[in-house]
Simulated scan of single mutants.
Amino acid sequence: MDTLIGIKGKDFIVLGADSYCINSIIKLRNDDNTKFYDINGKKCLLLGGSVGDRTQFGEYIRKNIHLYQYQNSTDMYVKSFAFYTRKQLAYYLRRNPYEVNCLIAGHDNQSGYQLYWCDYLSNMDAVNKGAHGYGGYLANAILDKYYHENITLEEALLTFKKCFEELKKRFLLTQISYELRIMYDDKIETQYVTV
């Protein structure tokens, strides 16, 4: 029941997720912060799925990226980070699958800002906008309508607000509290939004 949304502009990325922890028909928490995994201030992994899979897979990826950087004395490119995450999902798909959907974002000097969409079956693609979860069915239509190639940060935040208002009005679950990660100028800023 998670809602994950991402928009990439020329010099920024905005990621958003509802702040609820839900199991079946039970709301467990209203302030869940286990969906975002910031890595070195330049990369972010946004996960949706059951809280156990999210936590285990997110920590596994974060710790292995740190191990790679420690062993090689270099930072991993965003594209390499995305493909590593996809490879791990594919590896565990036939063993002990993690049922998580991902939005992978980051910035490096080689390729600038990048956003990747990856589902629990390890299908992945580089995208400019994307959404996961049941809320994604409604959010994708709004992203298609308001996204354009030269979108500014203000327009992206307004598009997120329109997505959140549409979810509040039409989605079965009441999702009124969201957490945003705004990546720009080589930093990640956190905002909390209540609709």
Rank of each mutant, 00 (worst) to 15 (best):
F12E: 03
G112I: 00
C21D: 11
L46S: 10
L143I: 05
S177I: 02
V127G: 02
Q110V: 09
K8P: 10
K10T: 04
A17R: 02
W117L: 11
V78E: 10
H66M: 10
S50L: 07
T55S: 13
F81L: 14
G9R: 07
A82F: 04
Y98W: 09
L4F: 07
E165M: 14
Y92H: 07
D53G: 03
E166N: 10
K42L: 05
C102K: 01
K42P: 00
L143D: 00
K187D: 11
N96H: 08
V78H: 11
Y37E: 04
L46E: 03
I22R: 11
G16V: 05
Q110F: 06
L93Y: 13
Y98T: 04
Y113L: 08
T34M: 09
N72S: 13
C102D: 02
L180H: 15
S111E: 12
D119V: 03
I188P: 14
W117G: 06
I65F: 05
A105G: 12
K42W: 00
Q56G: 08
L158Y: 07
F81P: 01
I65P: 01
C21L: 09
V193L: 14
I5M: 13
N140K: 08
V100N: 01
V127Q: 04
N33W: 00
A17L: 02
Y91G: 04
S24P: 00
Q175P: 02
N140A: 06
T34G: 09
G52Q: 08
G130Q: 09
D75L: 11
G6P: 08
L173G: 11
L143W: 04
I104T: 06
K187C: 12
I176V: 05
K35C: 01
L89I: 14
S80D: 14
Q88Y: 06
E149Q: 12
L93F: 10
D32G: 12
D75E: 15
A141Y: 02
K168G: 13
Y77A: 13
I5Y: 10
A141L: 04
T55G: 08
V78D: 11
M183N: 09
T85I: 04
H66P: 01
P97L: 03
F36E: 00
L46T: 06
E59C: 12
L47G: 02
L15T: 07
N150A: 10
E99Q: 12
T55F: 11
Y91N: 12
E166R: 08
L173E: 13
L138T: 00
S24T: 07
F171P: 05
T194K: 10
A141P: 00
L121R: 06
Y84E: 00
H107V: 15
V14F: 03
Y192E: 15
V14R: 14
Q88P: 02
L28F: 03
P97D: 07
